[in-house]
Design a binder for these strands. Structure first.
Lengths: 212, 212
DNA sequence: GGATAATTTGACCGGTTGGTAAACATTACA
DNA sequence: TGTAATGTTTACCAACCGGTCAAATTATCC
């Protein structure tokens, strides 16, 4: 008798590990492109190279697949912000934060779009997680505020500083189609991330200097 | 006999004007929140306060409704960029561009989200329009490049400058839920747009100054 | 007021989709 | 090797959804 994964003991077989990975990979493809409603289990199954009931053997509902993806993404998504170090040099810290966020936009665009889709819909399934986010941002905002107070960077609102870095970096993942369309085929190579990094670093380093 | 709107003469009755407006208003609500696939005609009809067949009397397909909305949004969406004036003072021009974009994010968040949804899904239905966008941006990038050449602003990539302004301003519409969650209930009042404007104006004015 | 055109609705249809049941196949392990 | 647990598939269902149709109702205009 086949018992669904969640109901049985914690033990996971080799096949479970592998298949769940394949399914989540496929689901990330489909969810990030079509949104939750637009994604179909049939489509995910096709991308994963297995039958629909087989997919549903590992994840009992579409919601469960989505949930698993969101949890995984949220977990790694905030790593760059966590590394934000109060002891470091503000200029270096901000520059490397921008770098890391841009690298994530370049290397994990589907994850970014999955998240964007979720927020666009009003974040129906991640309200508690947003609370954790708030705490982390509060903490880092305090770091930035300390930099301002000690005159290491110019006076500015730390929250909107963080928002602006999120926005500018994730833009290259979420609005990729638009960015490519505007830059045209010749400029849409991998170089656009380098160009973006250069521009943003300059903008923030100069923009946050203490005014003479 | 009832003949669908599109098939008959250009004449439009008073009722047509009114009902189409009501439907598009409802459709904007639903599409911007749930995406194209997630939106149902039933839901739109409910919000519009009429029956589904009645909605389909004015717009023959769901696609037609979406199309009408996208066309309308695209038309007004780029107005702020069009006003970008080569003759003006760069600092003033950039500041007022940021202002206008922030005002749009504040006053038309649903339109922003509709657009974001479309781009996220790979812009399936606005490829030609993206070409017009490219031309407009090319034109304005030339303006910015001229400012750089004449030493009115610091050296920077005009395309990524524009991208960054789009990203930072639209963020307040598209990621509204996240912004509110992070700022907390006390700081989520209307003041957040003023704070954002202050921060961004400072960032760009200082960030784009010619380096000493 | 009556004819005609415009508008509205309830009933319905076919395709899609999330999910199930149960038979069948394979793997793990004694 | 046998057998129990695990994994896979075919067939299927009920709900949903985009869209149609014909009949009923309302607005327009002479």
């Amino acid at each position: 008798m086949a018992i669904p994964r969640a109901a049985k003991t914690q033990r996971r077989t080799r096949i479970q590990e592998e298949k769940e990975e394949i399914i989540l990979e496929a689901a990330l493809d489909v969810f990030s492109m079509h949104g939750f409603k637009g994604a179909t289990i049939d489509h995910i199954a096709e991308v994963a190279g297995m039958s629909k009931p087989n997919v549903l053997y590992y994840f009992r509902t579409k919601e469960a697949m989505h949930r698993a993806l969101i949890d995984r993404v949220l977990d790694t998504w905030l790593d760059p912000l966590r590394e934000f170090d109060a002891e470091g040099n503000p200029e270096i810290e901000i520059k490397s934060y921008i770098r890391r966020k841009l690298e994530m936009a370049r290397d994990f665009p589907r994850e970014s779009r999955l998240f964007a889709n979720e927020i666009l819909r009003g974040a129906p399934s991640i309200m508690e997680e947003l609370d954790d986010l708030r705490k982390l941002v509060d903490e880092k905002a305090e770091v930035i505020r300390a930099w301002v107070k000690t005159g290491k960077i110019g006076r500015c609102d730390p929250y909107h500083l963080i928002f602006s870095i999120w926005a500018t970096t994730q833009h290259y993942a979420d609005f990729d189609v638009q960015v490519r369309a505007v830059l045209g085929p010749t400029r849409s190579g991998d170089g656009r991330f380098e160009d973006a990094a250069r521009f943003l670093e300059q903008l923030y380093v100069n923009g946050l200097q203490v005014k003479a």
